[in-house]
């Protein structure tokens, strides 16, 4: 689904590359989390997958970028649009404003793709219930809470059925309740196995719950890559500016205090921690 080979990218006027010789392959159906400190290149990677690097930001891109069978540097943004769905942090800026209700806002992408009316209606009803927005369907998108708006943004992208969905820190501007609502939708999305998902995220506790694979970015490079249990429990995390989950931290503290002796795998989720401390 994703095939990146030796990708290096400089933003205009930049002297330091945002991506530095990055190679990555993601098979179809995988839920892949990308973690890393601010400035590690998470957003740039997301924009590259969706074609905004280089088509929107210009700058200098070298290497191979192939996503959902599309040669990204050679294709137009319009051609990539139906293939890659992108959701980013600010929910408000993702509302087009060109439609007056939640239902119509979701329809906007389908209208642009020329989806026939009957199919459009059916798809919208499906996605409304998937994102738990059915009750809000006739409301104004501007009257929703941040969490609801972000679920609307996700629904608006998913309804177009892109083979690849890219989410760039979708909860970083939300309150805890809103974040929880959004993660609930993402967990359901991970369970469907229909779409390939790349999620850039700072909240490792959530990543640990539903990612199939975790990639750590540092200075535009991939420095760790593997199942969440391995990557998130690794001792290297702090040197990349990341904080291990509180479950791993607690286990490590217990280990240091001599409360736990076993060299079993450190927990990264709540369930694993319960098991670990039994």
């Amino acid at each position: 689904m994703i095939h990146l080979r030796d990708v290096t990218y400089f933003y205009p006027r930049a002297t330091v590359p945002a991506l530095a010789g990055l190679s990555l392959d993601v098979p179809a159906g995988q839920f892949c989390a990308v973690i890393g400190a601010n400035g590690a290149g998470k957003s740039t990677l997301c924009y590259t997958l969706a074609g905004f690097v280089p088509h929107f930001y210009r700058g200098k891109l070298t290497g191979q970028v192939e996503v959902a069978g599309v040669d990204v540097p050679a294709a137009s943004l319009a051609a990539i649009a139906g293939q890659v769905g992108l959701v980013f942090a600010n929910p408000f800026n993702q509302i087009t404003g060109a439609r007056f209700t939640v239902r119509e806002e979701i329809a906007f992408g389908l209208e642009n793709l020329g989806v026939p009316l009957d199919e459009m209606r059916a798809r919208i009803d499906d996605i409304l219930s998937f994102a738990k927005l059915t009750e809000l369907a006739e409301r104004s998108p501007f009257a929703l809470s941040g969490g609801q708006q972000q679920r609307l943004a996700i629904a608006s992208v998913l309804v177009m059925r892109p083979p690849l969905v890219v989410l760039d820190e979708p909860t970083s501007q939300l309150d805890p309740i809103g974040s929880k609502e959004v993660f609930a939708v993402l967990r359901d999305l991970a369970a469907t196995d229909e779409a390939t998902v790349v999620l850039a995220e700072q909240k490792l506790e959530w990543v640990a719950v539903f990612a199939d694979r975790v990639i750590v970015l540092h200075e535009g490079r991939i420095v760790a890559d593997g199942p969440p249990g391995d990557v998130l429990a690794s001792g290297d995390l702090t040197q990349y500016g990341l904080q291990p989950t509180r479950y791993t931290q607690a286990a490590r503290a217990a280990l240091a205090a001599g409360l736990r002796r076993d060299s079993a795998e450190l927990p990264v989720t709540l369930e694993e921690a319960v098991e670990y401390f039994k």
Binding site: A81, F88, N90, G114, M120, R121, I124
Partner: peptide, 26 residues
Amino acid sequence: VDIEERAIALEVRAFGRQGPKTSLLV
């Protein structure tokens, strides 16, 4: 400053696509 993100959001929704479009509103 918001223009950039709003333009990206529109592109994601195939706003720039040529060709026939449909409408939920009839």
